[in-house]
């Protein structure tokens, strides 16, 4: 079994329901995230549009975080998920430095690394990840990539030529795919990130893991 995730960006409307569901399900502390939806505005008024990109751990087959972890706190489980053992983590932040997707953070409460686990605890109980359940437009498609009859496999086959991963040049072989993505949505260097404000906040940087 090789679990994978696909987000159809044509469908995503940026409601952040997945973000909230993830926060609640995994008790993700304030100022940190396992899953977030990034808004990028494109164009010049009146020819503008807003893009929405859910971002989470890519559960790479060649995961830099798993390789760099000195104590195997980050490890593969048999369904392909890159899981984390927070009791073993020493908080060296090597994984934070290694992840090309910025998907790992230091939990300010436990002072250990944390990230999306595709809700491994729910999957163990044959439940879908919380973000999949919460999505009102079924933009999140999750399943077994090794099963040609699974929703995700069929979706990938139907959208051949339009399925992308983030930063393929890193050679990480992500198991997280996007349909309808583009340079602006998938490449962080393709958009400007003005300091000081965004739609609802004026915070752009936070201390890592709080004070320790």
């Amino acid at each position: 079994m090789q679990l994978g995730f696909l987000v159809d960006l044509h469908l995503c409307m940026g409601c952040k329901g997945c973000e909230i569901a993830c926060k609640v399900e995994n008790e993700v502390p304030l100022s940190t995230w396992r899953l977030r939806v990034k808004y990028v505005d494109v164009g010049v008024f009146p020819e503008t549009k807003r893009t929405f990109t859910p971002l989470r751990c890519n559960h790479c087959a060649n995961a830099p975080c798993e390789r760099i972890c000195p104590v195997s706190a980050l490890h593969y489980i048999e369904n392909g998920i890159v899981n984390i053992d927070k009791e073993r983590c020493i908080g060296c932040a090597g994984c934070v430095m290694a992840c090309p997707y910025g998907a790992i953070y230091i939990d300010p409460e436990t002072q250990t690394a944390d990230k999306c686990t595709y809700c491994a605890h729910r999957i163990a109980s044959s439940l879908m990840p919380a973000c999949v359940v919460a999505c009102p437009v079924e933009a999140n498609i999750f399943g077994d990539m090794d099963d040609p009859a699974s929703n995700i496999s069929r979706y990938v086959m139907e959208h051949q030529g339009n399925v992308q991963v983030r930063k393929p040049e890193k050679g990480t072989d992500p198991h997280h795919y996007y349909v309808g993505g583009g340079n602006v949505t998938l490449n962080p260097l393709a958009s400007v990130r003005p300091e000081g404000h965004s739609l609802f906040t004026n915070i752009t940087h936070l201390p890592v893991g709080g004070h320790h």
Partner: peptide, 14 residues
Amino acid sequence: TNAVVTLDVALPGI
């Protein structure tokens, strides 16, 4: 493109 990030979480510091 005039692509500008208009909503995102705070970035981690150093």
